[in-house]
């Protein structure tokens, strides 16, 4: 599906199928979303839109408008889309940060913690890499908290949208986010 525009109908159909319990639909859904997000992201990075940095919120929402036929999806399908999109966006951002980091440091292996990277790479890239890795550790402690951060930070969703995606109350999401934020901040900045 990397050639040509994906059909809105198809993404919608897969989303609906996945929400209906068809696990296989997800496997076909992810590459579709990935391709679309990447091409949007690439265009943003190439400066077509007058920008050189990724703006996840814009990219994710734009992909949604483009890929999903809004008349046919329920809020729950929508939630699933954003959940997938945030995952994909995370991967894109991390790859991008790695590439830029690698360019700067003459192709050296990417670094593990923020302390290492902070010295030379711009903060945003160092932060992306560090958050990504710390999130994996957090997921082992509390998968929901890690998910909330992924949706917020990489997917650019608001807490209300996240509550919608996860089918949880906004206050539960808020609590999970606060805890995750404290934990991650401490991990990254060693306070």
């Amino acid at each position: 599906m990397s050639s040509g525009d994906p059909q809105p109908g198809e993404v919608t159909r897969l989303l609906v199928a996945w929400s209906g319990g068809d696990a296989a639909a997800l496997e076909r859904l992810i590459p579709l979303v990935y391709d679309e997000l990447r091409s949007l992201a690439d265009r943003q990075l190439a400066g077509e839109r007058g920008g050189h940095t990724l703006q996840p919120t814009a990219v994710v929402h734009e992909a949604y408008l483009k890929l999903v036929d809004q008349r046919q999806v329920t809020w729950r399908n929508r939630g699933h889309f954003f959940s997938v999109a945030a995952q994909v966006m995370r991967r894109l951002l991390v790859d991008h940060a790695r590439r830029r980091g690698a360019q700067k440091r003459g192709g050296e292996e990417t670094r593990v913690t923020l302390e290492d990277v902070a010295a030379e790479t711009p903060a945003a890239e160092a932060e992306i890499l560090a958050v990504d890795q710390a999130l994996e550790r957090l997921a082992a402690l509390d998968a929901t908290q890690a998910k909330v951060v992924e949706l917020r930070y990489f997917g650019g969703l608001t807490l209300e949208e996240i509550a919608e995606v996860l089918g949880a109350s906004p206050s539960t999401v808020g609590r999970a986010f606060r805890l995750a934020k404290a934990w991650l901040y401490r991990e990254l900045f060693a306070t």
Binding site: G50, G51, H52, T53, L54, Q55, P56, T57, L93, A124, E125, E127, I128, V131, V149, R152, Y153, F154, G155, G156, F177, R178, L179, A180, K181, A182, W183, L184, Y185, R186, F189, T191
Partner: peptide, 28 residues
């Protein structure tokens, strides 16, 4: 230590990384 970290975290994670290009005059 977590309470302390939260107090200091400020806007950390609140906005997605890379908030877009900044421009000064005609320069990006």
């Amino acid at each position: 230590s977590l309470l302390h970290a939260y107090e200091r975290a400020g806007g950390f994670l609140e906005t997605p990384p890379a908030a877009g290009p900044r421009a000064i005059g005609p320069y990006e």
